[in-house]
Nucleic acid binder design. Structure first.
Lengths: 221, 221
DNA sequence: TTTTTTATCATGGTTTTCCGTGATTTCTAG
DNA sequence: CTAGAAATCACGGAAAACCATGATAAAAAA
């Protein structure tokens, strides 16, 4: 008898975990080792025992410590964990980001149930796996087509923002004016305006609204 | 033998439906009649056959036609359907909004699995049901405490925005300037500026960023 | 150590947003 | 029928955001 593939599931919505468990239970080759409801729990688990799971199913959107940070934790601590990211967003930048953080598969929640079993088996087997809609956006971007309402020519990812830029960005989303931000951070207004300009350029949006939308999308807020 | 409670589940994430089915299947008094993956499917279903489900589990966040619109459809067509709203957000305004649209229960996805069975039975029985974290925000608001980072004194709900206002708001979130919006809608720039001002006042935010954040929160975008 | 990045500030000019205030028309609900 | 939304437009002024460009010091990386 073959050894079962052990998976660990991390998602802040318990009900979604139940869904995955239900689907996975229909397959005799896979079994759920355990689950985490927060990013912190995942990190705790991997810091205590040695990793037992063959594959980690990881939600990106979690409060406090999100999927990105969990992946960074693995990277920083040289933990070689096969990870499949589960996300509501089919944004190419997120895909790029998690891939660069060493994740092996990416499936969209929209059609998770039909892809998850194949994804787990593929990744456990050392391959990569992407659900069909994610493949679609990847192909689109390769063929130069517009992806996600049209601002794809950006090499600029979340982590290319510096601490300060991120700080300013957050305050912008709180509707602070440049002057208020300057006061808050004890800096010159000119400096803040410079950050604004840089953010606009880096993120490649037209105005503060674009920055806010970007911040939301990448759950910076 | 008692009759089973029939439920219908609507959520755009298939995997979440599987989760609910898995949980509900553990209870002998409830069974899942069917499910919908889009708001349109829900409406279609209720417009064809006569309603068979005792309770509808409805996700608020769905593309194109969201939960709000489904509830409005019921209201407009005098369909008396017991509905439990399932949401990722514990924002009081959303709770108020769905309640005013005739929904009988509201549970947060965060702890859906522990509340869903009780919620279904309560609602099927003509009662109301709210998951614990939702009750918490309701209590907070009643005791006058701040709910959800502090701007709760607004009588201004999503539906108090007119069609035009909503249209302008959407374009603002797409980073259009007033002039561009005017062009797009074939209106005077002055008119658009008027809408901007009205939106700021109604929603009670400082600037366009605030409008964008509001739009995101209330999934207008 | 040299180069690059980050953080900081500045000047001057253009565009856009924000604010107050008020007016007309059409449509709708009392 | 009439009062009130809703949609439309206008003017003038203040504030804020956006744009271009460049500079300096410290820290980090190569």
């Amino acid at each position: 008898m073959k050894k079962k593939i052990l998976i660990h599931v991390a998602d802040d919505h318990q009900i979604l975990i139940e869904g995955i468990v239900a689907v996975v239970d229909t397959d005799k080759d896979i079994s759920v080792e355990g689950y985490s409801l927060t990013g912190q729990q995942v990190i705790d688990w991997y810091s205590n025992k040695d990793n037992i799971a063959d594959v980690l199913i990881l939600d990106i959107t979690m409060p406090v410590i999100d999927g990105f940070q969990v992946l960074k934790y693995f990277q920083d601590n040289k933990i070689e964990q096969k990870v499949i990211v589960l996300s509501s967003y089919d944004d190419l930048r997120i895909v790029q980001e998690v891939l660069s953080l060493g994740c092996k598969g990416y499936i969209s929640k929209n059609n998770a149930s039909e892809h998850i079993l194949r994804a787990i088996k593929a990744v456990a087997n050392g391959e990569q796996y992407f659900s069909s809609d994610i493949q679609a956006v990847m192909v689109k971007s390769l063929t130069g087509q517009d992806v996600e309402q049209g601002h794809m020519p950006n090499d600029f990812l979340i982590n290319s923002l510096t601490e300060r830029e991120l700080e300013v960005l957050k305050l912008i989303t709180k509707q602070y004016s440049s002057m208020q931000i300057a006061d808050r951070l004890c800096l010159s207004v000119n400096t803040i305006e410079t950050y604004r300009k840089r953010l606009l350029k880096k993120i490649n949006v037209k105005n503060a609204v674009g920055l806010a939308m970007y911040a939301v999308k990448n759950n910076i807020v």
